[in-house]
């Protein structure tokens, strides 16, 4: 039989190991990187067609025809303008590429992205739920997420085909568009987002791209009411116009 002081030491050690283990487990659970705060996409990344242009969507014949029809209309002076001129938000994926910041808010089971441009909100559920079997089709889709190590992986479906895939209005997507975004810190205030878009109806291969966002710890999201003083307009033919009454 062990002497009393030795038993006490063993008991203290056992409790200590348990407490430390629990603390370590908690630390692991809470050790996800801090992606919260206000972020802005770094511009200066070349995003338009031309030398050094981004990868262009590889379209199926049906969607290549839509693009050809769009270009033919533009050649006639139609379809110059996008619905955004009338303050209609672009939807995904374009809403994540705006020249205004977004705020990532982490609450239990959910990430909320407050996007300044067009006052948009995305809700990404991290509570283990699945996508609906038959989601309503929306501009920003239905998003679920999970962590893979230090990377937040967001999977989105349920997009209305009313919005464009980009880079112009001529590039369309279907209601089967599926987007995966991988959010990862590359340094304390730099967020890399690798976005992959697939669409069995519109694309012959997945379209992938990387953008870089910078955290602005002293910024707040501001109000953006597009209808306040919007002097741009798109006619029903998509012709660009501007209002100069004042």
């Amino acid at each position: 039989m062990l002497q009393k002081p030795v038993r006490r030491i063993r008991w203290v050690m056992a409790v200590s190991v348990f407490v430390l283990g629990a603390a370590a487990a908690t630390a692991v659970a809470q050790s996800k990187p801090d992606l919260g705060g206000v972020w802005e996409v770094t511009m200066g990344v070349r995003t338009r067609p031309g030398p050094g242009a981004p990868e262009m969507p590889a379209l199926t014949p049906e969607y290549a025809q839509k693009l050809a029809d769009f270009k033919a209309a533009q050649a006639k002076g139609e379809d110059e303008e996008s619905p955004q001129a009338n303050c209609v938000p672009p939807g995904m994926p374009g809403i994540m590429n705006q020249p205004y910041p977004m705020e990532l808010l982490f609450t239990p089971g959910k990430v909320t992205i407050v996007i300044e441009a067009y006052s948009q909100t995305r809700r990404i559920f991290l509570d283990g739920r699945k996508h609906p079997d038959d989601p309503d089709l929306t501009y920003n889709g239905h998003s679920i997420g999970h962590w893979e190590g230090d990377t937040l992986v967001v999977d989105s479906v349920g997009f209305t085909p009313d919005t464009a895939l980009g880079p112009s209005q001529g590039y369309r997507h279907s209601d089967k568009m599926h987007i995966v975004e991988r959010f990862r810190l590359t340094d304390p205030d730099t967020l890399e987002v690798v976005t992959t878009v697939d669409d069995p109806k519109a694309l012959t291969k997945a379209l992938s791209g990387t953008k870089v966002l910078k955290r602005h710890r002293d910024w707040d999201i501001a109000e953006y009411i597009c209808e306040q003083n919007n002097r741009n307009l798109a006619t029903d033919k998509g012709k660009a116009g501007i209002l100069l009454n004042h």
């Binding site: 990344v45 050094g52 981004p54 990868e55 374009g94 880079p167």
Partner: peptide, 10 residues
């Protein structure tokens, strides 16, 4: 860095 944003900075 240069390439492949799925949509332009709209």
């Amino acid at each position: 860095t240069l390439a492949a944003l799925p949509a332009a900075a709209v």
